[in-house]
Every structure is written in structure tokens, then in C-alpha cells.
Amino acid sequence: MIDDTPALPPELLLRVERLTMRFGGLTAVNDVSFDVRRGEITALIGPNGAGKTTVFNCITGFYKPTVGRLTLASKEGPLLLERLRDHQISRKANVARTFQNIRLFGGMTALENLLVAQHAPLMKASGLTVLGVLGIGGFNKAERAAIEKAKVWLERIGLIDRADDPAADLPYGDQRRLEIARAMCTEPVLLCLDEPAAGLNPRESLELNALLRSIRDQDDTAVLLIEHDMSVVMEISDHVVVLDYGKKISDGAPLHVRNDPKVIAAYLGVEDEEVEKVESEIAVEATS
């Protein structure tokens, strides 16, 4: 599996090539290619129904792409994501994701939510529970380390005082950040966030920006996010990919994308001829 997969350039973490996803007669994603670089926040934007979440679902193993290749530079070499099953996406490929709606384990405490995310190594250390119950082996040490790591994350998202409260009792913005912390506890190389700022008030939005920046700068994790809130996108992303009707229409730095007439047209709903007109006008301005 690793043999036939060409290695990516070292600065790239994920390369999406010619991704196409059809549902019956509907083509939700059509021939989309883009790269996610290490140490960057990449934003995937586009009007409703542009196919952003479908791209996410392909990357995280929910859908098998109709056509296309998703190469991830994992710790053990290049890996084709479209060939992995869901729990392998977390364990082998180290890709974590969140959803548009909050999917915390509401009945469990904030701390336990973060411990579940460290389940695979803990389960190994506990020898399928049998040794763990008997207190044999490195289980106690592993469990302590896991709790320690969970506490570090609770500290980072400012929820250390509420560690033992059920996750469902936390305010909405805190739940969002807890969900991101939980995803981070799986030690991902790529963190996929589906509309993390949806429903946040301006203060919570700022806290989220700070958290995402700290993840980019302190942890060895690249972030790929879908977002409608342009203030968040323009503020924190290093690289923006724009989709419209399943096709990629623009790709580049936030400033470049913001001034791209195609993007403006897609968001304002302008006819194609008008786009050409705007484009030619810009060309005229540029030459004059």
C-alpha cells in the first residue's frame, strides 16, 4: 500500500487530487485538487451546497470518493486516505475531525471526553482491561499520563475548573473548544474542523481564533477548516480554497482570494458574463 504511493514534497501534508464525488446523478464535488501544507491553517470556503462538507467526508473516511486520490504524509510515509476505514483514519492516518453540530459525549465529564480520545494507547497499556484491573504492567502510568495530557488541554481551553462537569452542562462556546481539544488529544497531524465558529458570539469567536493559532504554532498539527464567518477566515487562515457548485474556483492567500472576481461573483450570485466583464475591467486597471 505504501509502495505504490508516491511521496509528497516535504512541505505538504495532504494532497487532494482530482477528487470527485457523485451521489447517483448529482455531482457534489467535481474534479477538485488542492494541497494542505504543514504548519498552516487552510480554509475551505464557498456558498451553501458548494460541496465543502463532502470534501471533508471524503478526507475523513465517511465517503469513498467516486474518483480521486487523497495522499496524506503520515508519520510512516505516504498514505492513501480513501482506502482506510473510520477508526483507522484516527489511528493510522492521525486525522481528526469535528462536525457542524456538537458531538461531545454529553453524559460524560469534560475530562472523560478527553480520555476517550486517548483510548487506543490506553487500551493497549491496560492489556484489554484484564491486566489493568489487576494493576499489572504500565497501565497506571499510562492512565496518569493520559489524565495529565487531558488536564494540559483543559488548561489551554480554560476549562480546568469544570473538568468534572458533564460536557452537556457547559456553555456552547466552551463545548466547541472542548470538542477541538478532544480532537487534539488523538495527536492528529491534520485537524479538520467543520464550521467551528458557527453560533459563537464575538468574544467566543476570538477565543477560538486564539486556540486555532496556538494549535498551528505550538503543536505539530495542520488545520483544515470549513467556515462561513469571513472574519474568522480572513483573520486566521494562511491559505484559502474556494468551492462553488462542487468545483474549485479559487485557491491562494486570503488577500488574493478576497479580491478574486470569481469568488465575489460566487458569493454575490452574479452571472458568468458579468464576471468576465469585471475580470476585464480589473485587467484594464492593472495595465493602466
Binding site: D86, H87, V116, T129, R182
Partner: peptide
């Protein structure tokens, strides 16, 4: 108290999410 128990409770609430967090459902 054990990781197995936590995984069980997690699967009880949201199996898909548990799988995404690396729990072998």
C-alpha cells in the same frame, strides 16, 4: 473507571464519533 468502560459509554452515546476518536467500536 477503565478505558474499556469509557469506550463503552462513549459508544453508547455516539458510535460514529467514538470510532473517529480511535475507539475500535
Amino acid at each position: 473507571k477503565t478505558p474499556l468502560g469509557r469506550a463503552q459509554r462513549a459508544c453508547e452515546q455516539d458510535r460514529k464519533m467514538a470510532a473517529l476518536l480511535g475507539v475500535d467500536v
